[in-house]
Design a protein around this nucleic acid. Structure first.
Length: 686
DNA sequence: GAGCACTGC
């Protein structure tokens, strides 16, 4: 740079202090700043406090700082703040470290799976709720925390719900004034002076704090004002029969009649998004030339991240951006520039049928709070408008809030963790909302069949305890334990890592043939599990050969290139590699026998049969399959390498209901292996 | 010959 220009740039020191000044100003202007004293007083006075704070109140970043300044971290103890999502934990921690003027990982840090920045001097610790649950397995009293703040509690994720039940117990066990023998495992341990009382703060964005307050014995609730711009809500006069068509019309109506500002449309899935995108692009040329400046940007979780990033780029000058999004834009991703929201009122949600042991995704109406959350996305930067594509009287009929996830999912993992935490009576556990008896019984039964529970329904030793230690689906944890006996733990580690992530195969519709040719060289005639291992090892071999020649940064680039060339989703494969590394560490610590079966894939397939005997299916004369455990008639999913082969007997990992009932991720096995390797179960069946 | 909202350990 020519030296004459140098004087025109502020030096780093001035830049730094200018930024700090701006941060301090922003901090002071937050609605929460004026109630610091009152909040601290309430926290001191109440063991449990519910804080209702609307979007933009600053509760997540400010309250931990208030409490630290007020001296709640004395004796080296920590304020823990849980978040349902990793990104939130990471970004908020970075922001707060900056506000405090400290290096991340010192006074302020975060800890999420695969990424822990905390140190001995960390006093404000942001983390995911699932991680705190794991910590409780090692430290049942959560003894290093003086305060635990559960943020975004209104989202009611499984982890948040279990955590609240657990924290209630921990608080009771740590309070010196209470003497009871009803607090699960805690009564087995002597109450000790070193466990100072634990303060709990439950933070929620939903206006209704009643459920939380009642759950915590009538806990005090305080409200904090948010900073949200007004959003006008519009309804249709009559019910729409086709909400995709209605969305399309509304997009064009806004585009032609309303002022500048981007549009966010909430659709239920990839297919709908792609079809609306196609329809817009078909209609666009029919508009007058000057009205054709619309930029369509899709976003959903399965989209490769480079394409996801397109939503953050501003539209070219004169263009209006239309974002077609799934629920990802409701909470996980905040998109700037949105002034108009179109909400057809539907969402794709998971549901679980304990009778059939089957999860499925179904399209259902949103709840009121979800509709509110969606409309709020139009008022982040200025006043906005939200178009709900249903009549107002339909809104009144919606459920107030979405059914908590814990009532819609398989509970095996939850129950295994609770058992490991010393909660033996699952039906009697104080859930904020109790799952159905049928769902609890079904999962208890499954855990029993996997050998995790004894006849008395207690955690078995060592199998049950080992399974609970592994952060995996219980059936995969069991597979690892068995694999060490079958001498194929190396193969099984790769398999369960890959089964734990989204599909690693990336097949864009327009390049179907190329993708197929690319992945063909990995496929095994025995089934999908060995095919997955082949991909994983091919990638490893490639990287090993290359990494001798280059550094880490370059390896990363080469990794992405390899994935792209082979039509592999690099995000999924990286995730699987992280899981593989983490679980490998766990099984080594547990002293399992880390051996390989080499080329003896028969041995590995026998191990698969022994592990997944609950998920076996046999071919029927018509060519369909019968799942042995539930008796359901299923088909092989077309993505399987066994789709055409149709072997007599298979084990599978997933049974999903879409247009048909499909099984996915399968391997060919011998029916006789099942009766040999799981005789208790197959004798019972016959 | 299909189609998979979103998180998380």
């Amino acid at each position: 740079m020519p030296s004459v220009h140098r004087g025109n740039f502020p030096n780093r020191q001035t830049q730094f202090s200018a930024r700090r000044q701006k941060i301090m100003q922003q901090k002071k202007s937050l609605p929460i700043a004026s109630v610091e004293k009152r909040l601290v007083k309430e926290v001191r006075k109440n063991d449990v406090l519910i804080i209702v704070g609307e979007t933009g109140s600053g509760k997540t970043t400010q309250i931990p700082q208030f409490l630290l300044d007020a001296g709640l971290c004395r004796d080296g103890r920590v304020i823990g703040i849980t978040q349902p999502r990793r990104v939130a934990a990471v970004t908020v921690a970075k922001r707060v470290a900056e506000e405090c003027g400290v290096e991340l990982g010192q006074k302020v840090g975060y800890s999420v799976r695969f990424d822990d920045t905390t140190s001995g001097s960390t006093r404000i610790k942001y983390m995911t709720d699932g991680l705190l649950l794991r910590e409780a397995l090692l430290d049942p009293y959560l003894s290093k925390y003086s305060v635990i703040i559960v943020d975004e509690a209104h989202e009611r994720t499984v982890h948040t719900d279990v955590l609240m039940g657990l924290l209630k117990k921990v608080q009771l066990a740590r309070s010196s004034s209470v003497t009871d023998g009803q607090s699960g495992r805690f009564h087995k341990m002597p109450r000790h002076e070193k466990y100072a009382p634990l303060k709990l703060i439950i933070m929620s964005a939903s206006l209704d704090a009643r459920a939380f307050s009642e759950y915590f014995g009538g806990a005090k609730a305080v409200h904090i004002q948010g900073r949200q711009f007004p959003v006008d809500i519009f309804y249709t006069r009559i019910a729409e029969t086709d909400y995709l068509d209605a969305s399309l019309i509304t997009i064009f109506q806004i585009h032609l009649e309303e002022g500048p500002g981007d549009i966010l449309v909430f659709l239920t899935g990839q297919e709908e998004i792609e079809s609306v995108e196609r329809l817009i692009n078909e209609k666009l040329p029919q508009l007058p030339q000057e009205n054709q400046k619309l930029l369509i940007v899709p976003i959903f979780a399965a989209l490769p991240s480079e394409q996801q990033m397109r939503v953050f780029a501003p539209a070219p000058s004169g263009f209006r951006k239309v974002i077609l999004a799934t629920n990802i834009a409701e909470t996980s991703v905040t998109i700037p520039g949105i002034k108009y929201v179109i909400d057809p009122g539907f969402v794709k949600a998971r549901s679980y049928d304990p009778g059939k042991g089957m999860e499925s995704l179904i399209i259902v109406p949103t709840s009121k709070s979800q509709a509110l959350q969606r409309s709020g996305r139009a008022g982040r930067e200025g006043p906005g408008k939200c178009f709900r594509l249903y009549p107002e009287k339909e809104f009144d009929k919606l459920e107030d809030s979405t059914m908590p996830e814990i009532k819609r999912c398989n509970l095996s993992n939850v129950i295994l963790q609770l058992k490991a935490l010393g909660v033996d009576d699952i039906l009697g556990f104080d859930f904020i909302e109790k799952p159905s008896r049928a769902a609890i019984t079904k999962s208890l039964e499954e855990l029993f069949l996997l050998g995790a529970l004894t006849d008395e329904c207690l955690l078995s030793d060592p199998v049950g305890h080992q399974m609970a230690r592994l952060p995996l689906d219980p059936i995969y944890s069991k597979a690892l334990i068995l694999a060490s006996e079958f001498n194929c733990l190396e193969e099984m580690l790769i398999t369960v890592a890959l089964l734990s992530v989204e599909s690693i195969f990336y097949t864009p519709r327009d390049k179907l043939e190329e993708a197929r040719t690319a992945t063909k060289c990995f496929s095994s005639p025995e089934g999908d599990h060995i095919t997955l291992i082949n991909v994983y090892r091919a990638c490893n071999d490639f990287l090993e050969k290359r990494s001798m020649e280059m550094g880490i940064a370059k390896t990363e680039k080469v990794f992405r290139k390899w994935c792209k060339e082979n039509y592999i989703n690099s995000r999924s494969l990286r995730h699987a590699r992280d899981i593989h590394k983490q679980i490998k560490g766990h099984v080594e610590q547990m002293g399992l026998n880390l051996s390989s079966c080499g080329d003896d894939m028969l041995q590995f397939r026998r191990c698969l049969a022994a592990s997944f005997f609950l998920n076996a299916a046999v071919k029927q004369p018509e060519g369909t399959y019968r799942a042995l455990a539930s008796g359901q008639v299923v088909q092989i999913h077309p993505s399987s390498v066994l789709f055409r082969k149709k072997p007599e007997c298979v084990i599978f990992n997933e049974l999903v209901q879409t247009n048909n009932k499909y099984v996915r991720n399968l391997t060919r096995v011998d029916y006789l292996w099942l009766t040999e390797l799981a005789p208790q179960y197959y004798a019972m069946q016959n």
